[in-house]
């Protein structure tokens, strides 16, 4: 099986080199895009980063250079540290569960069942709905009244004892939000895994079956290793999405009850627009951006190292 993998890999590498050949286009072809990128992304980001070292309120001209004071305040800020904890918990939950469900869905609709195309559409459908719409929909589902939403459904199937204040209970609210995000985004992970599955050569499965490999053994030794690129993309995207999660939280809980669902993104938003501390908010944003970049680089380095080709 290793020999087959190596041979197919060499062919793929040759094909890749062929695609990369030819005349290199002049660099200035990229200039318009680079100018737009610099104006729309780089300049505002760098200009904004400067505010992290000031006490600017976000309105007016008054601002004083305060050095690293905002960053010192950040490490002492209980609300920000609580938000960091919530952000990490949410991210881990989303990365693990969303990708786990996405993989299972992809494996399910990659079989020969008749309704596989319809199921793919159904599972992917929540992805194309606006996160705000999904949040309001689930806010309705999570209505704490015993005769509404999820609680009414639980009651109807004889599980009334499981009724909860889904978004109002500080111990539960974070996981209720996480579930909503996973519900919406699992279809996205499914599509990426599905693309990976389409690239797994059938011949490898057939030869493994001839060698007597069972379903689980084929998944473990053929499918899973060859899904590594799809896994890299999925883990990367869900990690960045989890670390920067904002819309669903603001729409569903506004960070509450209390501070129970605050994340770094909601904290920086509140600091800027509710507390009127734009400088401090920018410091939080800067730390968040560096944190997300660091996690992404480490992740991509590790995940790429285990990728293989068919």
């Amino acid at each position: 099986m290793t020999a087959i993998t190596t041979a197919v890999g060499r062919e793929a590498a040759k094909a890749s080199r062929r695609r990369g050949g030819g005349i290199a286009p002049p660099w200035f072809f990229a200039a318009p895009a680079l100018v737009v990128y610099a104006l729309v992304m780089l300049y505002p980001s760098i200009a904004g980063a400067g505010s992290a070292f000031t006490d600017w309120s976000g309105v007016g001209e008054q601002r004083t250079f305060v050095g690293l004071e905002n960053f010192k305040q950040l490490v002492r800020d209980d609300q920000a540290l609580g938000a960091l904890r919530n952000t990490l918990l949410l991210t881990v939950a989303i990365v693990v569960v969303q990708n786990g469900i996405g993989l299972l869905l992809a494996l399910g609709v990659h079989t020969g069942i008749k309704s596989r195309m319809a199921l793919r559409v159904i599972f992917f459908a929540p992805v194309v709905v606006s996160p705000v719409m999904v949040s309001f929909l689930w806010k309705y589902v999570y209505n704490p009244a015993p005769d509404a939403g999820l609680n009414a459904a639980l009651d109807a199937i004889g599980l009334g004892a499981l009724r909860q204040d889904w978004l109002g209970d500080p111990s539960l609210a974070l996981w209720s939000v996480a579930f909503t995000v996973i519900w919406q985004c699992a279809g996205y992970s499914m599509v990426i895994f599905l693309a990976g599955l389409e690239g797994v050569p059938q011949e490898l499965h057939e030869s493994a079956m001839v060698d007597g490999a069972g379903t689980f053994a084929r998944f473990r030794h053929i499918t899973w290793p060859l899904l590594a690129p799809a896994t890299t993309i999925n883990v990367m995207l869900s990690t960045v999405g989890g670390l920067t999660l904002f819309t669903q939280i603001i729409a569903m809980t506004n960070g509450g009850p209390g501070y129970a669902t605050d994340t770094l993104s909601t904290v920086l938003y509140k600091q800027a627009f509710v507390y009127g501390k734009f400088g401090y908010s920018t410091a939080v944003a800067l730390v968040l951006a560096i944190f997300v970049a660091a996690v992404s680089f480490i992740q991509i380095g590790y995940l790429r190292s285990r990728e293989t080709t068919a």
Partner: peptide, 21 residues
């Protein structure tokens, strides 16, 4: 005196009602 007391009040009342403080 500042814009932080009021949202803090909102949050602590929710925590009180949730039995968290």
């Amino acid at each position: 005196p500042n814009a932080e007391v009021q949202p803090t009040h909102f949050a602590v009342v929710q925590e009180l009602l949730g039995g968290k403080t």
